[in-house]
Every structure is written in C-alpha cells, then in structure tokens.
Design a protein around this nucleic acid. Structure first.
Length: 1078
RNA sequence: GCGGGGGUGUCAGAGCCUGGUCAAAUGAGCUAGCUUGAGGUGCUAGUCCCUUAGUGGGUACGCGUGUUCAAAUCACGUCCUCCGCACCA
C-alpha cells in the first residue's frame, strides 16, 4: 500500500520550493480570481474549512490547468471576540493567541496541499492592514458615509458590546446566541442606506449567485412603495405623517397607532389624565425584549389610548390615537394608520374594543337568504314587513356592496324538498357565497349542500329545524334526512343562531346540527323562532357581524372596495395607484419609498479590533486623526485592564489621552473599535497587492484582478459579510479606488458538514478532525471524500465508511499505475494497429474527459469523481494493453484527478515518467470524433456475454464445464434489425412495419418475424442501440474467447448460427449470442 | 403569513431543465465465490418481486389525475418535509 502521507509531504515540499503557485499580473493568460471566505483563526481547522478549501482548490487548480492566470490567495480574519475572551479568561495576549492559531491553521492548510499563493497572505490584525481600515473610515467620514448618532441600538450583554442589525438573528446575538437588549448610545454608523437602492437593483447583475441568497438580500433591504398620509391631531392641529403600503384601506381607518419611542407620544399626553397610564404602558413595552416585541408569536399586543383624536384627511373622520408595542419607531414614520384589513391592527382593536370598519369584500361574494316555512295559515311574506330581519339584512348587505338575494320558495306553507331543490339549483352559488337559512330553509339548505357537495364560504343557520325521530307528523317528511358530515370540510365556516326561549329548536341546533357540522353556536336572548312577533326588536345585528366576519379575523384578502368614496367598486390592488395619485393631488399625502435596511452600526466596545481614528477635543469637537498619523495603534494588552466589563481601551490612559490635532490641547481618543466585518469587507481587494503602501490597494492591480470570479463560503453570511462587501465595493468605487460595481461575480454557498444527522459540535462529540483523517489516510483521501460525498451546495454527511471507500479508490489507482510501469511508452500510438479494446479504452477516455470537464464546470464534483471512477475501472480491466494507448489513458487519468487529489496526480505523473509538474499541465481535451459507439457496443457485447455465461453456470449449478459454445446470430437477423430500426423511425404502426418488412427478402422468416416485430416495437429497450453486424460480432466474440477460456478454464468455441445444427443456436440474436455449456 | 428548496432502491445521493437508451450513475451496506495464515486487505459476481440454463413477466421513483405511442422526467391537484425572513404597516 502506498504511503499517501509521505507522497503528499514530498509534493508539497516540491511545490513550495518551486513556488509554482505564485502569480503576478504580468501574464498573457486571462485572469481568474478564486476566493474562499478567509477564516477566523480560532484554534484549528475544522471540517467546514476543509470543505470550503477543497472546493476552492479543486476549482482553482482546474482553472489553472485550463490556462488561466489564477489568483488564489489565503488570509486571516484575525480580529474578534474569541481572542479577547481568551485574554480575559486566561490572561493571554490576544495577539499572541491569534498569531499562534494562524500558524497552526496555516500549517494545516499547507498540509492539505491547497495551491495558494502564500506570498499574498493578509491578516487583519497587522497594522499594515488595519491602518487601511482607518484610512477608509476617514474617507467615509469625509464623505458623510461614516457618522455618529445617538440611537436605540442592539446590545449583547454577554459580549458586552453593541451589534449591527444584521448581527441580531431572531433576537439573539449571532456569535453567542444570547438575548439582545436595547440601549440608547451614541455610536458610529456607516451610511449603507445611501446605497440601499443600488444594492437592491444590482442584485439583478448577480446572475451566478444562488437564488436564495439573492432573495435573502432583497428581503433584508426590504424596499416597499407606499404613501405617507397626513393625519391632523384634532386637539392640537399637528400634522402627523403615517406610512402605509395599503392606501386602498384609507376608508377603513378607525384608529392611529404611534410607536412607543416616538416623541409625539409624550407630547400628546403630558399634562393630561392619560399621562400616567401612557407612561406605564410605555415602560412596560420598553421592558420587553426585542424578541418579545418583534416576533409574530408574541401575540400579546400592548398599548393604550392617548386621549387624542386624529382627522382622516380624506373624509374628515375623527379617529382615536393609540400607542402600541408592535409599531416600530425605525420603520416608516413610526406612526401607522390602523384598520380592519390588517391582522395586527385587527387583533389590537379587538383587544381594546376599538370600532372597526371593512371596506374590501371578496370579488364574487354574494349572500343568499332562504326563508323558512311560515306558521299556519299565514301567507304574508316577510318582505312586506320592514320589521323583519330578513329584509333588514338584505338591505344592509346591499348597502355595503354585497349582492344579496332573497328567493321566494314555492308553497311556503307546506315545503316539499324536491321543489325547493329546483329553486336552489337556479341560484348563483360559488366558493365565496354566504348562505343564510332560517328554520325549514336552513334544513333544506343543509340537505341540499350535503347532496351536492358544494363548496361555499359560509353557512349561517338561524333556528334550524330538525324533527326528533319519534315525532310522527307531516313535518317528519320534511325534515327527516341525514346530515352529511363532510359539509364541515367543504364550508369555511358554519354558524348557528338559536334563541334561549325556543326549547325544541335548541335541541336540534345544538345536538344535531352543531355537533355533526362542528359549528359555532351563538345563543341569543328571547328571539323565539326568529319570526317577527317573537322578536323584541325587528332585527339582530349579530347576524350582520357574522356575515362580515367581524369578531373572527381581519379580512386581508384582495377584493372589491366598498364604502370607499369614488373608489368604491374597484379592485383594491388596482385602486392603489389611483388612490395614491388622488392623495397627492389633494395633498392628503405623498408617495414614498421605504427600506427595511438600517445603517450599519460599526462601533464595538471591545479591545481586539481596529481603533476608530477619531479624537474628541473640548474646544474643537470631533476631529479626524490626520492621515499622516495613521495607524492609530492598539496599545499592548498589558496597558489595559481586561475585566470582562467595559471596554478595556478606556482603561488605557496612554491610549485615551492625546493631543488635539488642531489646537494641540489635551484631547481624548475614541475608544470604540470597528466591527470586524469592516475588515472582511475589502480584504479581497488587498490580496491584489497585499504589500502596497500608498493606499488600501493598488488600483491598477485591483483593476486587473477584480471582481472575484468565483467566491466560495458559507450561507450564514448571506446578509452579513456579503451585503457589507457589496456596500464597500460600491463606496470604494465612488471614492475612485475601485472600478467594479460588484465584488463577486459568482458565488457558491457550500452546505454544512454534519455527522449522525447533526452539525459537528464539541457538545455532541461528533467532531471529526481533518488532520486526523489526513494523518491516517493522507490529505488526498480527505479531500476526495469531501468532494465526492455530496454536491458542494448540499449538506455533507460525514461517514467513516465512505472515507474508507475513497481511500480504497486511491489505492486502486495507485496500484494500477504501479503495476503497469512496464506498460508505459510515450510514443504516439498507431491508429491502424488498434484493436477493438484499444478503441474502446480511447473512446471511454474521451467521453470521460468530456463529462468530467462539464461536471467540474458545473461544480458537480461528486459526479465528476463518479465518472473518473468508472473510467479507472475500465483501465483496470484493460487486458493485453497497447502500451501507447494505456500510457495516454493513465496520463489523462492522473491529470483529471489532479484537482481532486493533487498529490496522487503528481505522483502518478512522475511514476509514468512525465516531465515537470502535473499541476502546471494543460487540462486534457477531448475529441468528440474519438467517442466510438461501435467500440463501446463491442465492449458491451463482450461484457454481457461474460455475465451471461456466469449466470448460466450459476443457475445451472454447473461446476465443471468442459466446453462453451457461443453462437453468433444468423445474418438475416442483423438485416432485420437494421430494417426494423429504419421502419420505426418512419412509423410506429405495427401493421405498416410488418407489411414493409414482409415485402423484402426477409419474408421467408415470416413466422419468426411476426412474433418479433410487435415485441420489439412496443419495447424499444429490447432493440440494440447499435447494430454491429454479424461479422463484427463474430470477430469481437472470437477475440474475447481467449479471455473466456482463461476465466472459465474450459474450451470456448465461437460459431455462426447458420453453421450449426444445435437448437440453442436459433436463440441467438444480434447483441445476444446464444450460449451452450457442456 | 411571505420567499426558496425537497420527497428516488437497505442507506447516502445522481437523474428531472432538453420525455424513450432507467430497475435507475457513483459510493456505502448486505450476500456469495476467489485471494490470504485469517470472515479483518484485495479481487469477482449478485443485491425490488416472481420465474428461468443467460429468459420472460410484474411492481417501483410521496399520493392522485391528466398530456403522450411513451413519464422518475411534462401539466394540474394533493399530502408531507427542510430552510430563510417575519408584528416592516
């Protein structure tokens, strides 16, 4: 067995000595920039890193071999909390801690054989790097892109520093997962919002970015179009702007809500009787964690009335003003108009008893009211009496725009279901229909809906009738039917109204309808059977509420506007534009665009980061540190106190106390350091000229290398690093430093490495150390497995068995080369001396190169490796090798494997006496013409025949065979196959085909043909892909017979079926020789 | 709720865009034979079900329906599932 570790060491050393991966801009080749997200140097390399770099190195090596001038650098994101925490805990110097880790990781990376240009290494902790952070900060400051403001900010108590919005994930700190609280602090920000529009728009340019990353960024930027509507406070005359994206609901507004942080809140209540309650409520809200306040699950909506009213500009209505926790100060104007078409507003209104008003209904909604059977001899229709609830609700519905129908049923006195049914059929009942039935009408509706299985929106039963079983009356015929239980699945909502004073109906409503239909039951007082003489009032408003869904949920669907002034009757979505326009025209409001994106808070109250180059002077105010004095160096840790509380820099007088650059009096330095995401926002520029001294980077070199052609990293940075880096690139462009708009043209987000179904973590004890694997099997095995086990974007399930499989494959390939050193010849093979097998091997080689190239191009490494494995298998089975063909084949195998397993690739290259470094060789090219279908068909035939023999021996339990006879099919069968293939292309009609074939010489085999044709036409898979012909098959099988003799240790004879009397011979078919074992 | 993905053989995981060559790549697992001192390594074969001297047939790519001569692949519906965002007005 080969010592892969030793081989790896050997080649790594050679590569390093020859500096073969060093690149410069001086090249005729086209540039290609491959980059992996640089690591935070904590302790050691883990599997996630290994995967990241294996993917990148594979691609970089491939591109290099393809003839590109590949920039492939590595560096370290070396500032950050873990180092500082180590300082606090163990009193270690963060710098030493970090540098040690960097050394370890660099060693491990080198040990894996990654082809970085190490001369370009950058690390953010070096002052020649962070100096440029400061330099860029000052440039930003001068342009107004960096500014200081007092704001409510995210505070992580456990990291004891503030965080940017992007670094708060579900209310928790992205690094330590502890709850984030809110504080008011004066902090430094980058004005990323200036670029919101461009950051959003340019997502379109990111053609080769994963869709989900783009969506995440879009969501995060959160652009929305809306209208600021000006409400006026009735009592004070103040104008308050409210932001909405739904101006179509303006006529639904019944209250206004202000964010608790809004200064207006205090202004409105101070000195009034509402002051105390308001202050208490606001205090309560402020005690809530951000998580509690901003998650949908925290259903508790808290707020209170401020005692003031606002005037709706469009209709002059006065609506109450509230404060509530769910309204956010930093989105829109911090004030919202609230209505019945928003779930949150709705819930709030329900809780605080605020009046609601609907203005949108479903597009094709309608309401049908079915009356009951009037009592006794009564003939007057309820329609005649305005006192009755039926005409009342009908008119009410029409008033608010819901078409209502009140069909007259035949013979109301003695209803017959069959007759009523006919009437029901005539009605326009759809999925948005609301059906109201009273008494017998209710019963018949239920019966009918059950029969028809019709889907409707809502069914309201008013005092539904159903006669108990033992009643023996005329009514039994009317009401005795089975209630279809499936109705509850078809109908969105079923409500039953009953009265407390009509006992016989209570039973029917509750125990029969209510239970079977799983309906909501509303019990009213003293309404009798809901016929007018029983009712104290002429109507019951609860019914209208139920129809309109008040009391259940907000109506958030789209539909038709009603009660909306001149916009009544329009579709609400289509009305948004005209309403906005109308509002602007009448100065009710103005159209605005809002973003969710907030400015990037970059201040950190920690030691281990880039000091912000600002000085505070009592006289001169806030001043920049002059460029000439950069960098502002971090003081040595000994000079600071690391207590775990507060910013250690504040405890370093030497650092804090300085002179004002303007008046030279005593002044103090800013002690906040920068978010480490600042470091990583431009490091990819620094790689282009990592030692440049006059600017963050050499503009010309950056122009040559940028943008990064292929970036690879974890999905977790979808909206952190990747958004910041895009912002920086644009800002640097506007500073005329960079010339690109976007930093990364192509992005690959790798999946996680998991084991036993869970993310690798110390606490679960399922961590596999890459170095251990490398020590045991060599780095190539680790790399191969990690690329082979899953597609790069998917998660990778670590399996020790799988690793072993990869290791075995590498051994097989190594042995293949090692055992065939005598079969190496670098001469060009003679085209004319190739046998079928040689041609097959070459064909396989070309097709493999083609497939592997395509797969690598698509980042389908596992598939590429699969193809290589197949190919290696073919080479292994290559007997009686043509030395030249074999040499070329294995040479290309070595080259194709090189991006995946570079050490083995080099080793084989060297073993087979090839010159120079394989790493610098040209990627193999393929010739489509050399893909030889015939050679492949022959190889397949030989292989199939062999398997068939094995199968026969097994099934026949033959242990000692004396002789095997192979019959190649009769010539006419080949002719037939050819002809059939032609015919099938023309037509699939069996009659036609048969007729056509029977008209040829083949007709003498008619008997057999009539059996074969239908079978072969119906199942094309039985047809050989490629008809070789009798001669070719005979020669192929005859050549192979020697191998069969060796393998089966008996005589093997090959005959043509025509020349034999054996019955078996007849069974032979093209591509299927008949086999007789004796 | 909004947005993005998935559901394939014992398992992992391709195929689906561009329907047939798909009982479905590749690896793992399992079974048998050979190799070996050895069941640890390596090699060869088999591995959905029934049947058979290499054959033939059936079932299968979440479920249902449809389009088609033909569907894992296309359409519609449905169920389940993973991920991201989310009281953003």
């Amino acid at each position: 067995m080969a010592d892969f570790k030793k081989i790896a060491d050997k080649w790594q050393e050679k590569w390093e000595r020859a500096k073969i991966f060093k690149v410069t801009e001086k090249s005729d080749k086209k540039k290609f920039y491959v980059l992996e997200m640089f690591p935070y140097p904590s302790n050691r390399l883990h599997m996630g890193h290994l995967r990241n770099y294996s993917i990148g190195d594979c691609y970089a090596r491939y591109k290099r071999m393809q003839g590109f001038n590949v920039l492939y650098p590595m560096g370290y994101d070396a500032f950050g909390l873990p180092a500082e925490n180590a300082a606090i805990k163990h009193g270690i110097d963060p710098e030493k801690w970090t540098l040690t880790n960097m050394d370890t990781i660099r060693q491990q990376q080198k040990g894996m054989g990654f082809s970085y240009d190490w001369d370009r290494e950058v690390a953010s902790l070096h002052e020649d790097y962070y100096k440029w952070n400061q330099w860029i900060f000052l440039k930003f400051y001068e342009k107004g892109l960096a500014y200081k403001k007092k704001a409510a900010v995210n505070w992580c108590p456990s990291c004891s520093t503030v965080l940017a919005n992007e670094q708060v994930v579900e209310g928790k700190c992205w690094r330590c997962q502890n709850d984030v609280t809110e504080t008011f602090l004066e902090q430094w920000f980058f004005r990323i919002t200036d670029y919101a529009e461009e950051l959003l728009k340019d997502i379109e340019k990111l053609e080769h970015w994963p869709e989900r990353v783009k969506t995440m960024q879009k969501n995060w930027i959160g652009k929305s179009y809306g209208v600021e509507i000006f409400f006026k406070i009735k009592e004070t005359g103040q104008i308050i702007p409210t932001f909405t994206t739904r101006p179509d609901t303006i006529y639904s507004v019944t209250f206004i809500i202000i964010a608790p942080e809004h200064p207006l809140v205090l202004e409105l209540v101070t000195g009034t009787k509402y002051e105390k309650a308001t202050l208490e409520t606001v205090k309560k809200i402020r005690q809530q964690t951000r998580q509690e306040r901003t998650t949908a699950e925290g259903k508790d909506k808290i707020g209170c009335f401020l005692g003031k009213y606002a005037i709706n500009p469009v209709n002059g209505e006065e609506v109450p003003v509230y404060v509530a926790n769910f309204v956010l100060m930093d989105y829109g104007t911090g004030i919202v108009m609230a209505d019945a078409h928003d779930q949150r507003d709705f819930e709030f209104a329900k809780k605080y008893g605020i009046h609601l008003k609907f203005v949108i209904r479903s597009e094709n909604s309608n309401c049908i009211i079915v009356h009951g059977s009037p009592q006794d001899e009564r003939t007057d229709e309820p329609e005649e009496s305005e006192r009755h609830w039926i005409p009342w609700i009908k008119n009410k519905l029409r008033e608010i725009g819901i078409p209502a129908f009140y069909p007259q049923m035949p013979i109301p006195w003695a209803p017959v279901y069959e007759e009523w049914k006919k009437e029901f059929e005539k009605l326009d009942i759809n999925e948005n229909s609301i059906l109201i039935g009273h008494s017998a009408g209710a019963a018949f509706l239920v019966r009918w809906l059950g029969e028809k299985q019709k889907k409707i929106k809502k069914l309201i039963l008013v005092a539904p009738a159903k006669i108990p079983k033992n009643t023996n009356s005329r009514q039994k015929d009317l009401y005795d039917f089975e209630i279809n239980k499936n109705l509850k699945n078809l109908i969105q909502q079923i409500v039953i109204f009953i009265s407390n004073d009509e006992e016989r109906h209570i039973e029917a409503a509750k125990n029969i309808y209510g239970k079977i239909l799983d309906a909501r039951i509303i019990e009213l007082k003293n309404k009798g059977h809901f016929i007018f003489e029983d009712m104290n009032t002429n109507e019951f408003p609860e019914l209208l509420d139920t129809v309109l869904e008040v009391g259940n949920e907000a109506f958030t669907e789209n539909g038709i506007l009603f009660d909306s002034g001149e916009f009544t009757g329009l579709n609400n979505l289509e009305a948004i534009e005209p309403i906005s326009e109308w509002m602007e025209k009448n100065k009710y409001g103005k159209r605005t665009i809002n973003f969710k994106l907030r400015d990037w808070l970059i201040s950190r109250q920690r030691y281990w980061g880039t000091p912000i180059p600002i000085v505070y002077c009592d006289k001169c105010g806030i001043l920049q540190v002059p460029y000439g004095e950069l960098p502002v160096r971090l003081p040595k840790p000994e000079k600071c106190k690391f207590t775990g509380k507060g910013n250690p820099l504040e405890t370093c007088n030497e650092f804090v106390n300085t002179k004002c650059p303007k008046c030279h009096n005593e002044a103090k330095r800013e002690t906040d350091t920068m978010d480490t995401f600042v470091d990583s926002s431009w490091y990819f520029f620094r790689y282009c000229s990592n030692k440049f001294e006059n600017a963050p980077f050499d503009k010309e070199k950056a122009e040559y290398w940028m943008p990064v052609d292929q970036y690879i990293g974890g999905i977790e940075h979808a909206i952190l690093h990747l958004l910041y880096a895009r912002f920086f690139t644009k800002a640097l462009r506007d500073l005329r430093l960079a010339t690109v708009d976007e930093p990364f043209s192509r992005l690959l987000t790798q999946g996680m490495v998991i084991k036993d179904g869970a993310k690798m973590s110390k606490s679960l004890g399922n961590v596999v150390d890459p170095e251990e694997i490398s020590n045991k099997y060599g780095p190539d095995t680790a790399r191969l497995f990690i690329l082979f086990a899953a597609l790069p974007e998917k998660e990778l399930d670590w399996s020790d068995k799988g690793v072993n499989g990869s290791f075995r494959f590498l051994n097989r390939v190594y042995n293949l080369a090692n055992e065939n050193l005598h079969n190496i010849s670098h001469k060009r093979y003679d085209e004319h001396k190739l046998n079928d097998q040689d041609k097959y091997v070459l064909s396989k080689m070309h097709i493999t190169i083609k497939n592997v190239t395509q797969h690598i191009e698509n980042f389908e490494f596992s598939l590429a490796i699969g193809k290589i494995m197949e190919y290696a298998d073919v080479l292994q089975k290559y007997k009686e090798k043509n030395k030249e063909v074999f040499t070329e084949s294995i040479k290309n195998l070595a080259l194709m494997m090189l991006p995946f397993t570079p050490h083995l690739g080099e080793e084989i290259w060297h073993m087979i006496k090839c010159e120079g470094f394989a790493s610098l060789e040209k990627w193999p090219s393929y010739d489509e013409n050399k893909i030889d279908k015939k050679a492949e068909a022959i190889a397949e035939l030989i292989q199939n025949t062999r398997k068939d023999i094995i199968e026969i021996l097994r099934l026949g339990k033959i242990e000692k065979q004396k002789k095997i006879t192979l019959f190649v099919a009769d010539k006419w069968k080949y002719d037939f196959m050819d002809k059939l293939k032609d015919e099938i292309n023309k037509s699939r009609n069996i009659m036609h085909i048969t007729k056509s074939i029977m008209s040829t010489d083949l007709k003498i085999y008619g008997n057999e043909l009539t059996k074969l044709i239908p079978k072969l036409v119906q199942d094309e898979t039985k047809l050989p892909q490629f008809v070789l012909g009798q001669d070719a098959e005979f020669h192929a099988i005859n050549d192979a017979s020697k191998n069969y003799e060796d393998e089966f240790k008996c005589k093997v004879e090959v005959t043509i079926a025509e020349n034999s009397n054996e019955a078996k011979a007849k069974q032979s078919m093209p591509f299927k020789v008949a086999i007789l074992v004796e």
